[in-house]
Simulated assay, not measured.
Amino acid sequence: MATNSETLVTVFGGSGFLGRNVVRALCRRDYRVRVAVRRPELAGYLQPSGRVGQVHTIQANLRYPASVEAAMRDSHIAINLVGILAESGAQTFDAVQAKGAETVAKAVAAAGASLVHVSAIGADAESPSRYAKAKAAGEAAVTAAVPSATIVRPSVMFGPEDQFTNRFAALARMSPVMPLIGADTKMQPVYVGDVATAIADAVEGKAKAGATYELGGPEVLTMREIMQAILAIADRKPMLVPLSFGLARLKAAFLQFAPGMLKLTPDQVTLLERDNIVSDAAKAAGLTLEGLGITADSLEAIAPQYLWRFRPQGQFQRKSA
């Protein structure tokens, strides 16, 4: 049996938020890591994740099967992290999360390698959300091509550099009023480091082959409670104004063309209409973080380590009443 240092893991989408955490987790376990991304020249920051020569970046685009097949050459294990929250040009949900996942799975099968595929809680072929439908189609394609693949479904992830807690804290710094969409929708925020650990565990064979794991944090919180926690950590006090889903969709019709953190799409509003939590079936089957022996970190424990920068007077500001 090959040792970790002799095992080559190809990580598709390894330069993203989850990807950089996965690369670090693999490097700590002494794996050789090949990071396949569309723009490898922009992923140099991954090199210090491991020792000299441990991390290598190459070009691959899931819309071009030949590039995916080349990325799998001599690889023993693949991890597919590629996903988008909003469509842009040729980067559609179907092209990236359905057909793209199928392309990776077929290349993995042809290479005789193992596969860990990252999807999302809420993936559902019957969902009104095109994002969730594409995630479900990707899962089906992966299972058809590589029946032994481990599928990982995280809830909404938080951590340094996320586009979730940082986004709301930044908006709170800019505006005295913040709209609240899906105030009563339940979520189970999960620390990105815990998800990366679970994926590394799956690479090591600690997860059940052919199983689908649902990864959530230790607390189930409403969107209102999450926002209140973020604002408390950032010591910001904007007025939270709940929006109905109808008004939110109307707002998203315009904001889908907005830049950066202001962007909001109708499909994202649709996603907020459904709870995003670990299912009872996954808990009963042990297909969770706890089932992998991982003690999940809470939002309250982790977020203050990086959201302090949004406080009016910075890290050492005394807590206001």
Rank of each mutant, 00 (worst) to 15 (best):
D94G: 12
A120N: 09
A90Y: 01
L85R: 07
A134Y: 09
A105R: 01
P128R: 08
L85E: 08
A113G: 07
V82W: 01
A109D: 02
I84L: 13
S155K: 05
N166K: 03
R130W: 06
P154T: 10
D162W: 09
A120G: 03
S129L: 12
A86V: 14
V118Q: 00
N166L: 12
A105C: 04
A141I: 09
D162A: 11
A98W: 05
K133E: 12
V146A: 12
G83Q: 06
A95H: 02
V152A: 08
S148H: 15
A95C: 08
P128Q: 06
A149D: 06
D124S: 07
V156K: 06
T165N: 05
A134V: 10
Q163P: 00
R130F: 08
S155H: 04
I84S: 07
A141H: 10
A141K: 12
S88Q: 15
I121G: 00
G159H: 04
V118F: 04
S155M: 03
A109L: 03
G83W: 02
A95P: 02
G100Q: 06
P154M: 12
I151C: 04
G159W: 06
F93T: 07
Q97C: 13
T92R: 14
L115Q: 08
A107G: 07
H117T: 05
S148I: 13
G100D: 07
I121W: 00
R153I: 10
V108G: 01
A109H: 04
A137V: 12
Y131C: 07
A132M: 10
D124T: 01
V108S: 02
A95R: 06
A123C: 14
T150R: 03
K133D: 09
T150E: 04
A120Y: 05
F93S: 05
K135G: 09
I121P: 00
A123R: 10
F164N: 01
V96H: 06
E139S: 10
I151V: 15
Q97D: 15
F168K: 09
S129I: 12
F93G: 10
A110S: 15
G83T: 07
L85S: 10
A145S: 15
A125L: 04
I121K: 00
I121L: 05
V118I: 14
V118L: 09
V108L: 02
F158R: 05
A120H: 06
A110C: 10
A120F: 06
S88T: 12
M157C: 03
D124V: 01
A134I: 11
R153N: 13
P160Y: 11
A110W: 11
V152W: 02
P147T: 14
A86L: 08
G159C: 08
G122D: 00
V104I: 03
D124P: 00
S127Q: 02
T165Q: 07
L115K: 12
F158S: 01
S88C: 13
